[in-house]
């Protein structure tokens, strides 16, 4: 008899990374001891600036890059000792196009299924399912090079899913994809996630991480700067900047007690509000100065601000290290 896991026990670890290091052949140390854990069913984002090491991490997990040291486990399967089992659980969408440009769309996807040991008839079924879901069925007999950039990316998603992996890894899936398509990809990924697939993605679009993900790791210069839930990150933001458009043109920023104010380039008023300060006070003071506010919005993306701040902190710390 098997016992079902109790409702309260947390889901298994889909991915565990311990003290992962990577030095490339040139001697460049791209990863300097990464620790990362992702639970089954999670929607996880790896954020970081260009060259931070995101693709290197994913490359190691997917056997495209050899690690220098450290441990990687996929659903408990160590990639050093139990690689095939680990690989069966993974589906990979790389950052760069890496299919044979001359092969037909349908062949690319069914062939990939074959590499996972799926017999041809099943492979065809699965390929048809995902190509239809990703809106590529009409293109199935075209050579891959005839697809548009967005279609090529969707082709790679179909290819990654054809063996129904439990973890889907996407390295910047929406790079170079227009807004409409990006939204439909988000919907698709959310649906996959709801149906139980663990999703790990890297992205430069912070709104993407904010919209989709539950947990986030921020990486910079080969180190994890932060590894927490999105909610936690957001509540940590003390400052939020609001942009107010006043009825009359402002020539200089009014001084508001307890708030930092300034004018932006177009004459709108920017007010920095600390968490818990409340906005009523801002409006009361503006009222007293006879400034009528027509509209208001938050400036930029909050996660983006936080992100920049963290990367900056990390850089400062690195500078200190260099000085010592």
């Amino acid at each position: 008899m098997t016992t079902l896991p109790s409702q309260s026990s947390p889901p298994a670890w889909a991915l565990e990374i311990e003290n992962l290091r990577k030095s490339y052949g040139s001697g460049f140390e791209a990863l300097k001891g990464i620790d990362l854990k992702v639970r089954e069913g999670d929607f996880f984002a790896l954020l970081g600036p260009n060259g931070a090491g995101k693709s290197t991490i994913l490359g190691i997990v997917c056997s495209l890059v050899n690690k220098s040291s450290g441990k990687v486990r996929v659903f408990g399967h160590d990639i050093d000792t139990d690689l095939a089992a680990a690989k069966l659980n993974l589906g990979v969408v790389p950052q760069e196009f890496n299919f044979n440009q001359f092969e037909k769309v349908f062949d690319i996807v069914t062939t990939q299924a074959g590499y996972y040991g799926i017999p041809l008839s099943k492979a065809r079924e699965s390929a048809e399912h995902y190509l239809k879901k990703l809106g590529l069925w009409e293109k199935k007999d075209d050579p891959a090079r005839m697809l548009s950039g967005g279609m090529k990316r969707r082709l790679m998603i179909a290819r990654a899913l054809v063996h129904n992996p439990r973890i889907l890894i996407l390295d910047e899936p929406t790079a170079g994809v227009d807004i409409e398509l990006r939204r439909s990809m988000w919907t698709f990924l959310e649906e996959m996630n709801r149906n139980g697939t663990t999703i790990i993605l890297t992205t430069h679009y912070l709104e993407e991480a904010e919209a989709l993900c539950r947990n986030i790791a921020i990486i910079d210069h080969g180190r994890i700067v932060r590894h927490t839930s999105k909610k936690e990150l957001l509540t940590q933001l003390r400052m939020e900047t609001f942009v107010l458009d006043a009825e009359q043109a402002l020539t200089e920023a009014p001084e508001l007690d307890g708030f930092v104010t300034r004018l932006d380039g177009e004459g709108a008023l920017e007010v920095e509000v600390e968490k818990g300060q409340g906005l009523n006070e801002v409006f009361a003071q503006l009222d007293r100065k006879d400034i009528r506010v027509l509209s208001m919005r938050t400036k930029a993306n909050r996660l983006e601000e936080l992100f920049l701040r963290m990367v900056e902190d990390n850089n400062n710390r690195r500078d200190e290290e260099v000085i010592q």
């Binding site: 056997s63 495209l64 690689l83 890496n98 990939q112 590499y115 040991g117």
Partner: peptide, 18 residues
Amino acid sequence: FSMKFQRSIEELLVSPTP
């Protein structure tokens, strides 16, 4: 070589094929 060059060899490398 052309698989290597186009990097479609990665399709095989990520798969469990020995």
